[in-house]
Computed example of a mutant assay.
Amino acid sequence: MPASDVTAEDIAARLSAIGLTTRMEEHAAHTSIEAEVPESLPAESWREALEVVAEADRFGLVATSLNGRTLWAAVQKAVPATGDVRGPGRQR
């Protein structure tokens, strides 16, 4: 299993352990993890959740009056070790 998959699964598991319901989605270049954050989440759990998502490549919080608060994280998939990793026309 690629390291990026392990990282994404670890983030989801640790957010679940805090008591948040998580969902993961695979994309072409990254894996996203989202968790709905209840209004009643204690401050200590918030700190722990932020420490967890800080291990991702990107993270944030979406808050709306209609849908509540969603904490999200994105873990980039590994770059291939061989092949055209520098893009078309950039090979040596």
Score class of each variant (00 low, 15 high):
residue 13 A to P: 02
residue 68 G to T: 06
residue 55 E to R: 14
residue 82 T to F: 08
residue 32 S to Y: 04
residue 56 A to R: 01
residue 66 L to F: 08
residue 79 V to L: 13
residue 25 E to M: 10
residue 85 V to I: 15
residue 89 G to V: 09
residue 12 A to K: 03
residue 44 E to T: 13
residue 40 S to D: 15
residue 75 V to Y: 00
residue 72 W to N: 07
residue 12 A to Q: 03
residue 86 R to A: 10
residue 35 A to G: 10
residue 3 A to N: 09
residue 28 A to N: 07
residue 28 A to H: 06
residue 63 A to S: 14
residue 21 T to R: 15
residue 53 V to C: 06
residue 46 W to H: 14
residue 2 P to Q: 09
residue 3 A to D: 11
residue 53 V to Y: 02
residue 90 R to W: 04
residue 89 G to A: 12
residue 9 E to T: 10
residue 24 M to E: 11
residue 29 A to N: 10
residue 58 R to M: 08
residue 31 T to N: 11
residue 23 R to Q: 13
residue 18 I to T: 02
residue 91 Q to G: 10
residue 28 A to M: 05
residue 39 E to L: 14
residue 88 P to G: 03
residue 17 A to N: 13
residue 72 W to I: 03
residue 44 E to P: 02
residue 68 G to C: 07
residue 23 R to I: 04
residue 44 E to W: 05
residue 88 P to E: 13
residue 30 H to D: 08
residue 12 A to E: 02
residue 51 E to D: 13
residue 21 T to I: 11
residue 76 Q to Y: 08
residue 13 A to S: 15
residue 81 A to I: 03
residue 27 H to Q: 12
residue 9 E to L: 10
residue 64 T to R: 14
residue 63 A to D: 07
residue 1 M to E: 09
residue 85 V to N: 07
residue 52 V to C: 03
residue 20 L to R: 04
residue 20 L to Y: 06
residue 59 F to E: 00
residue 25 E to Q: 15
residue 64 T to H: 11
residue 77 K to N: 05
residue 57 D to E: 10
residue 44 E to I: 12
residue 87 G to C: 10
residue 74 A to L: 06
residue 37 V to F: 11
residue 75 V to R: 00
residue 4 S to C: 11
residue 73 A to E: 01
residue 31 T to M: 12
residue 70 T to G: 05
residue 36 E to C: 05
residue 86 R to M: 08
residue 37 V to L: 13
residue 67 N to T: 14
residue 24 M to P: 01
residue 81 A to D: 03
residue 48 E to R: 15
residue 83 G to H: 05
residue 69 R to S: 10
residue 92 R to S: 04
residue 36 E to V: 13
residue 64 T to N: 12
residue 76 Q to N: 13
residue 78 A to P: 01
residue 26 E to A: 12
residue 69 R to N: 08
residue 69 R to D: 02
residue 39 E to R: 15
residue 13 A to F: 08
residue 31 T to E: 04
residue 59 F to S: 12
residue 81 A to K: 09
residue 4 S to W: 07
residue 40 S to P: 01
residue 60 G to H: 06
